[in-house]
């Protein structure tokens, strides 16, 4: 059962050169308890997608979609007040550089207790206050912080980046959301810290049935037990499928190139030249027509100036005129 259902989402920005489709007909489905990895290079609109789901919307953006449903709510049909209630109850987000968005003026304990929804606390003032503290401690235990009492007294500058990310996860899960959007949560983190954060997210998803939309830049920094993976490039969905399919049997040239470039393939000889996409990522003002990968794609032909239709096969979908065939 899909709890998040996005069909043909388009986001248009007004620039001096006229409207630009930053996200172009993007479809994404997320099932309950699933970890979905969204891979995209910079400028692919992946953070914009997260904002569109959460409703952090700039009034100048024009958002249209055939479907943008969260469970049985049509998110685009709700008024801002209703949407705020739904989003606040069911969704949460964590960001990159966690140390920089914790409030430097307050201790971790103060910030964490603020995140606990007041509606769930019962009794008189003193009772509520102690309850809040106890719950904050319990949250820290749940994200794997053992010296909870000690950490609560500290200020953000006194803790490491990995710890800060754990605390931001604790704040995000304080109201037990159904969907957690993680926007590059481990960029510029050490491999060991990254592994810890991923293990924690995997455990939370398994134990609480929480869906996670994991946004990353690179296939190497993918969460190990993610079930599905989608690749976006310049706002267009390139390929989407189960993680196994994407890693082992890619259909889209972009997926293939990303796999080769990430050096996940052991067959590349050391010190040999890497296969890569030529050129640079186009800027918003100069997006190519048709398939946006076109100018950089090794398999591009004349037909690529038309936007390719999306081919769907069971769980797997890709948008390419000349996909890599299965025997290749």
């Amino acid at each position: 059962m899909n709890i998040l259902d996005i069909r043909n989402l388009t986001i248009e920005l007004d620039t001096s050169a006229g409207p630009v489709k930053v996200i172009d007909k993007l479809s994404l489905q997320l099932a309950e308890g699933e970890i979905h990895t969204l891979v995209g290079e910079s400028g692919s609109g992946k953070s914009l997608l997260a904002k569109a789901i959460l409703g952090f919307i700039n009034p100048r953006w024009k958002i249209t979609a055939d479907r943008l449903w969260w469970r049985h709510y049509d998110l685009l049909g709700l008024n801002p007040a209703q949407r705020r209630i739904v989003t606040g109850r069911d969704m949460a987000m964590i960001f990159q550089n966690p140390g920089s968005y914790l409030d430097p003026n307050h201790t971790i304990g103060e910030q964490l207790s603020e995140a606990i929804p007041s509606g769930e606390l019962k009794g008189f003032y003193l009772r509520r206050r102690t309850d809040r503290k106890v719950r904050a401690e319990r949250l820290l235990h749940r994200v794997g912080i053992k010296q909870a009492k000690e950490i609560m007294q500290r200020y953000p500058y006194e803790i490491s980046e990995g710890l800060a990310q754990k605390i931001s996860i604790a704040m995000a899960i304080a109201h037990s959301p159904k969907l957690l959007i993680a926007d590059e949560p481990t960029t510029a983190m050490e491999p060991s810290t990254r592994a810890q954060i991923y293990r924690l997210l995997g455990k939370l998803s398994a134990s609480q049935g929480m869906s996670i939309l994991m946004i990353t830049q690179d296939l190497t920094t993918m969460i190990p037990n993610s079930q599905r993976t989608s690749l976006v490039y310049c706002g267009q969905l390139m390929e989407s499928g189960t993680t196994e399919q994407i890693l082992n049997k890619p259909s889209h040239p972009y997926t293939q190139a990303m796999l080769e470039m990430s050096l996940l393939d052991q067959s590349v000889a050391p010190k040999s030249r890497l296969p890569t996409l030529s050129g640079a990522i186009p800027t918003l003002q100069n997006l190519p027509i048709g398939c946006r990968l076109g100018p950089r794609c090794p398999r591009a032909r004349r037909a690529c100036i038309q936007t390719p239709p999306t081919t769907r096969k069971k769980q797997h979908s890709f948008a390419c005129h000349f996909p890599l065939s299965e025997d290749e």
Binding site: E41, S42, A188, Q217, D218, L219, A257, M258, E260, M261, S262, K271, S272, R273, L274, P275, T276, L277, S278, A280, I281, R296
Partner: peptide
């Protein structure tokens, strides 16, 4: 190489090897 996109990173690595 940390802050570069994968495709750009591969290009830079190639350049350095060359």
């Amino acid at each position: 190489f940390v802050s570069l996109d994968p495709s750009i990173r591969a290009q830079i690595i190639n350049l350095i090897l060359d």
